[in-house]
Design a protein around this nucleic acid. Sequence first.
DNA 1: GCAAAAGTGTTCGCCTTACACCCATGA
DNA 2: TCATGGGTGTAAGGCGAACACTTTTGC
Lengths: 225, 225
Amino acid sequence: MADYPEFSVTTDLVVLTVRGAALQVLLVRRGIEPFRGAWALPGGFVLAGEDLDTAAVRELREETGLTAPGGHLEQLATYGEPGRDPRGRVVTVAYLALLPDLPTPVAGSDAASADWVTLPAGELAFDHARILADGVERARAKLEYTPLATAFCPPEFTISELREVYETVWGATLDPRNFHRKVTSTPGFVEPVGRSVAAERGRPAQLFRRGPTRLLHPPMLRPAS
Amino acid sequence: MADYPEFSVTTDLVVLTVRGAALQVLLVRRGIEPFRGAWALPGGFVLAGEDLDTAAVRELREETGLTAPGGHLEQLATYGEPGRDPRGRVVTVAYLALLPDLPTPVAGSDAASADWVTLPAGELAFDHARILADGVERARAKLEYTPLATAFCPPEFTISELREVYETVWGATLDPRNFHRKVTSTPGFVEPVGRSVAAERGRPAQLFRRGPTRLLHPPMLRPAS
DNA sequence: GCAAAAGTGTTCGCCTTACACCCATGA
DNA sequence: TCATGGGTGTAAGGCGAACACTTTTGC
């Protein structure tokens, strides 16, 4: 063991949400060098005796004040190119988090300042632009064959809200009628709550909550580019 | 940086191949403690100044003597649970490699001994059984929507050979006629070489090589379980 | 009633499936 | 000529895309 090089290990988070009609990512302004003042993904060093997943959850809570109830957190990929951090040899295990649009704004507790930024998000510190791009691509792909779009929604939601998530993340427009039928006919995707909610205009929409299925059969199909 | 804990980083490889009608994984017998004498995934420590991908390619070459020409190598996932290595805090970046059934047997150059083991592969050192399971699941899923099955085949192959790869990895039987039509009609999946090869019995089969497509439209469908 | 959004019915065409059938070779 | 595997034709059924149509609300 002593013959081999030592690394620092960090977890960085690609935290995505859908607000209005925009896909947004949680970014922090770096308060220290390197890249002081630049936007970066939230994250930090893994502590001794701490699991990688635990570190990611802790960073998410520290940066956003949330524990992702109803949200989703998964490992994305690991980045370890020798020159990627000027401070030394740092390996970053990136995580992807999908959260509903929470009324609580970001409380930058220990970060200099944190904010939601609409994509595309311009220049980022380190290789975070690439990590962000990988996370967005993963999210787009996973909407097809998993019910993870519900992670962007509150616990109870309408089919239209769910459709807006798909349209925002994919940057496409979907037929409301066929989307409704597809979602409600896919076993275990959503379950009716039994109540309705009045919209600003038009017929009230039924409320649904997420179903038990973790994999969609058949998958939702992204329109041809 | 000095305030944060130091880690060792390794790359471990899930190297899969299809031989005969069996899905096999490359395993090594550990020559040193811990887990001396047990089967383990090939791999080793990342060197100073070495990229993670580069380390994976190096380990693959050192353990198998191959540079995976025509094969496939991708990052799988990262495992960093505190107690997973009794020697200390080790984070392992796992890679998945898909290789054709090479005439060259495994040359265990610096490993104690390496061999192909038919799945399922019993007890493994560390948490390698879980890493292996993750790799097999990734391979099964990727055959659906990518042309990676060709990574298990030699540069030129018949449609029947490709079908045997699918059948072996999925553990399912596929209709030869429909499989042939599906593969040859999916744009960019395979390209005809123009030559044929005589089989032991029956009509000679046309040879194909892999096409340029990286994503299958439409995907190959796994039969309902 | 009218506008607007929710939700249903129906048709068309493509793709999968199942399987009949023909082709090319060795014995 | 027969057995065997390679490859094509074709009809039935399922599903997605498109869109007409009905339902339920606010004004």
